[in-house]
Nucleic acid binder design. Sequence first.
DNA 1: TATGAATGAGATTTCATTCAT
DNA 2: GATGAATGAAATCTCATTCAT
Lengths: 191, 191, 191, 191
Amino acid sequence: MAEDTRGKILKSAVQLFSKNNYHVVSMSEIAEGAGISKGTLYWHFDSKEDLFREITINGMNYFNNQFKKIVQTDQNSNEKIHHLIKFVLNTLVEHLNMIDVFRNNVELISNEFKDTIEAKHKENIDVVAEIIKQGIDEGIIKNENPVDISTMLLSVLFTPQTKELLDHAQVEKKINFIYDFIMNGISRKEN
Amino acid sequence: MAEDTRGKILKSAVQLFSKNNYHVVSMSEIAEGAGISKGTLYWHFDSKEDLFREITINGMNYFNNQFKKIVQTDQNSNEKIHHLIKFVLNTLVEHLNMIDVFRNNVELISNEFKDTIEAKHKENIDVVAEIIKQGIDEGIIKNENPVDISTMLLSVLFTPQTKELLDHAQVEKKINFIYDFIMNGISRKEN
Amino acid sequence: MAEDTRGKILKSAVQLFSKNNYHVVSMSEIAEGAGISKGTLYWHFDSKEDLFREITINGMNYFNNQFKKIVQTDQNSNEKIHHLIKFVLNTLVEHLNMIDVFRNNVELISNEFKDTIEAKHKENIDVVAEIIKQGIDEGIIKNENPVDISTMLLSVLFTPQTKELLDHAQVEKKINFIYDFIMNGISRKEN
Amino acid sequence: MAEDTRGKILKSAVQLFSKNNYHVVSMSEIAEGAGISKGTLYWHFDSKEDLFREITINGMNYFNNQFKKIVQTDQNSNEKIHHLIKFVLNTLVEHLNMIDVFRNNVELISNEFKDTIEAKHKENIDVVAEIIKQGIDEGIIKNENPVDISTMLLSVLFTPQTKELLDHAQVEKKINFIYDFIMNGISRKEN
DNA sequence: TATGAATGAGATTTCATTCAT
DNA sequence: GATGAATGAAATCTCATTCAT
């Protein structure tokens, strides 16, 4: 029962935070969306920030866990990268909301929280950098700072435009387009 | 005096909006930052939204104008792209604040305003697509939808991570890194 | 507790609105008068207009209900008119404040609200017109448009001067004076 | 030239105060309506209250002067009353605005000003009471307190409903209706 | 005379948070 | 666990008024 209410709150909050900015979403709305009273909301979460924290960190952990799983498979780096892109873009399609929570709310709340989020993001970058290192070792990826490369890779995947591209359907085709962009850039390759 | 005050307001507002979310920045703060009274602030701008609108649209127009100038030079596409990247990244370094105004505040305010901003952004994409077309014609850029390519290019340039990379100095080096990433992606080129 | 607070708010608001114009009375004053905080005031009423609406419509309904009761008695028209005058003037004496709410605030707020109020007033006129019709049938009242006569009758009763007359005591005497004015006008009757 | 500006201000103010409540009309609007700046407005009038005072007192004096003229003619009381009614109702039709200035703004501003206005009104009542006295002497009007009768007479003439009746054209007919109401009331006269 | 710019007090309203029941 | 009611700080905005030019 308890978990039920908690779940309803989180669901309502994710939905609202993904559509609107942190400061525009009110605790009243969240409570209403969850079908409970404000009092109850405050029984489950100490504050608005607390609630937002939980949602954000859950989301980041979700990516972190999946990234780690991908690293640990015994695929070659090429396959892993393809896997990674596919996973991120499919998540973007299936769980648009959760992703937008980050987009709409970067730089909010306290600096201490911003640091937490950035640390989590850094973690993700480092996990993906493992794949890059593997690729360099395998001679597939150019030999530059793996962290810089990982940074660019993730920034392309989480860029708002990526989502826009996906909006217009044909996901599979777009995945290949983005994969090719990341691997080969925009210049014409002679063969 | 009048223009002077207007300028002071805009400066104060850009500074604050670039550090904090639209809803966190208060008109009192902006007034205080400009060294004027709230009444005066409202004499110059009808509303907070009005003020924000002006700043945002000014910023987008700035990019749009520069992009157009680059297109109109008689450089080849390769040079133009290099020029473009250099311009954007240098602007990011010199006018960090103005850029962050967008970052922190997309999706805010009214839908009508969001549409305005998106239309401006689309304009920018289309202008850059001209360069891509030229590159395809010159056999430098791969023959795919120029608008899609332009979209990716700009998304990489305006991605938050780009700014992070730049934060840690060595701008010139990073420009080359990003240029290479955009042109050739991350895979190892055999030579 | 809840109803109690609501009542305190309404009492405070009626008192203030009856002494001062809608725009001069502030929500702070109303809250202070009710011994509660502004936040609580807004918990009970969505807006100042909402609060004013409730008071006004309550008041008009009060008159409407009484007027209907008078119509439904089995008195003759003469008695009903006397009854009506007595009721209105006594209410003016006992609930001066509530009446003044209308006086001080007609034409305020939105047009939509003005229409609501005018519709309510028209209802009152129509109800009283029933009495006038009865009087015409009974040969007591002159045979002219009953709605016009009803309009004049009510306008005399609710005229600010009527209240002034009443201020100077001797209510019973003044009731007769007004009754006589309404029935016979000011000209001398020969007998 | 100077009078010209003053005149423009007064005209603009009358127009606005007659349509909206004192507190809803702003000095900016008045200035705009007069085609001048706020600074100029304040050069001609010390304050909003000052401006409103002038308009109101002008209006009341206008009625006062006309009433006095009517009293001083050598008509009999019957004719004078008819004259008075005609004058007031025609003014209501021709200068609706000016009249509404009172209607919309009674009880506003300071108590001291309210007293001034009430004193002016009392003056009007007293002037009209002269006519009533004459009527009593001539055996045309019933022998009751002339001031009370005058009060009722004026209250009927200035009642909002009177204006409504007039709105629907046929002024001449309505004048007779009101005249008859004032003289004979609503009861059926046997003949 | 006339103006544009500036001011500051105060108004309405929102909202995260608390607490007695 | 849950709720309705209450709070108070702070936000946006309005407006009469002033003043240097």
